[in-house]
């Protein structure tokens, strides 16, 4: 699966990861699914609701999730996935990511360091394993309208 987004959306996630460092950040990605891939149109921040060590874990409040689904329905778009950061760790899914993952979603992971993000990857759960998605950055995305 291919994931297409513009630089503005990428910057929003990067800024969130940098601002949240050394804690993990998280949020939602919205857009539309098309035969040749997923086109992202919006990213929304979500509070990290993890009550434990937010440097190593994230959790999204079910009510925030519910509101994200409602937002998608009201705006004719699809909640396509979740992004989160890995402070001082590579942008590869952990065993914790795998345990909690649900099929269909794109899971974007940002490898965050102090003041920068080194790498961004995206993954989808297929047959109980993560498969990496190709991320394509386009300056203008006009296919949504």
């Amino acid at each position: 699966m291919k994931l297409v987004l513009n630089k503005d959306l990428m910057d929003k996630m990067v800024d969130h990861a940098i601002e949240s460092y050394p804690m993990e950040c998280c949020g939602f990605v919205f857009g539309k699914e098309q035969p040749d891939g997923r086109i992202l149109s919006e990213v929304h921040r979500a509070p990290n609701n993890q009550s434990g060590d937010q440097r190593r874990r994230f959790e999204i409040d079910p009510l925030d999730y519910l509101k994200a689904e409602r937002y998608a329905l009201e705006n004719g778009i699809t909640l396509l996935g979740i992004y989160h950061s890995h402070p001082d760790h590579p942008a590869v899914p952990s065993i914790h990511d795998l345990k909690q993952a649900v099929p269909f979603f794109s899971y974007l992971i940002l490898a965050a360091k102090k003041g920068q993000v080194d790498n961004i990857t995206s993954w989808q759960l297929l047959e109980n394993e993560f498969e990496e998605e190709k991320i394509t950055i386009e300056n203008r995305i006009e296919t949504l309208n």
Binding site: F58, E59, R70, I82, H84, H86, H96, Q100, V102, Y107
Partner: peptide
């Protein structure tokens, strides 16, 4: 009524 999957994760220990 909404069905809500748990969304969580994090880095390896």
């Amino acid at each position: 009524i909404s069905i809500v999957p748990a969304i969580a994760g994090g880095i390896s220990d």
